[in-house]
């Protein structure tokens, strides 16, 4: 294993920060594939989660998806899609979308489902249509929990995007795999530190957004 100073040397070496395989490009790729995966997964999971939470039907689907998501190894999904689809962006992206869906579903369903039934009835009582009940009552009240689901999904996607580098030339994981292959421990540990920093930063930002929505909902309620 290399010493701390060697890792620091790798992290501060300017040549690692430039070019098409430099650290900024890799961070950009990592964030781009993560954001795209979350966006696509949200397009699928949020409407389904809202529908299940609103109608309170099909909750078994949520529990099943959550259980399956824990049991299915992410590496298995990545290698399976990698073999089936081939080298490129599509396979890791698709795997990340599949992985993000259960957390998003669970958060959305829990959020909508936890809205007090009396409030929903009151909204109907003042003449709101179902669409208005969903958009103007349930979604605003459920926002902190829904964002909690997005937070969990984002963390998982950022972590798994590291493994995506195993089947494609994408993201910060490249430094880890390149380091593993050539036994370049400075590169490996340096890359690991970058991924961890990115994950913790994302966690902090999302936690902040979540607590801001909570305060907002609490104020509008009062």
């Amino acid at each position: 294993m290399s010493s701390f100073s060697q890792v620091l040397a790798w992290l501060t070496d300017l040549s690692n920060w430039s070019g098409t395989t430099g650290i900024p490009i890799r961070i950009g790729q990592h964030l781009a594939i993560s954001a795209l995966a979350i966006l696509l997964a949200s397009l699928i999971a949020l409407p389904v989660g809202i529908a299940i939470g609103h109608t309170r039907r099909g909750a078994g689907l949520i529990a099943g998806a959550a259980g399956a998501a824990r049991a299915i190894p992410t590496l298995g999904l990545l290698t399976l899609f990698g073999l089936g689809i081939g080298i490129g962006m599509t396979a890791p992206l698709l795997a990340l979308v599949v992985l993000a869906i259960p957390s998003l579903l669970a958060g959305t369903y829990a959020g909508i489902g936890s809205v007090t039934p009396a409030v929903v009835d009151a909204a109907r009582g003042v003449g709101m249509r179902e669409r208005q009940v969903i958009w103007r009552v349930e979604i605003p009240l459920a926002a902190p929990v829904i964002i909690g689901g997005i937070r969990a999904a984002t963390l998982q996607v950022i972590a798994t995007a590291t493994l995506a580098a195993y089947i494609s030339d994408q993201g910060l994981g490249r430094f880890l795999f390149a380091g593993l292959k050539t036994r370049d421990y400075s590169q490996m540990i340096g890359g690991a530190i970058l991924v961890i920093a990115l994950a913790l930063l994302a966690e902090a930002v999302l936690a902040l957004i979540q607590s801001l929505t909570k305060t907002y909902v609490a104020h509008t309620r009062a």
Binding site: I158, G173, I189, A192, E203
Partner: peptide, 18 residues
Amino acid sequence: ATLLYAIPALPLLIIIAA
């Protein structure tokens, strides 16, 4: 606990070994 859980697995393995 929340922060520890946020650390991706492969980097954690490498850091633990180091």
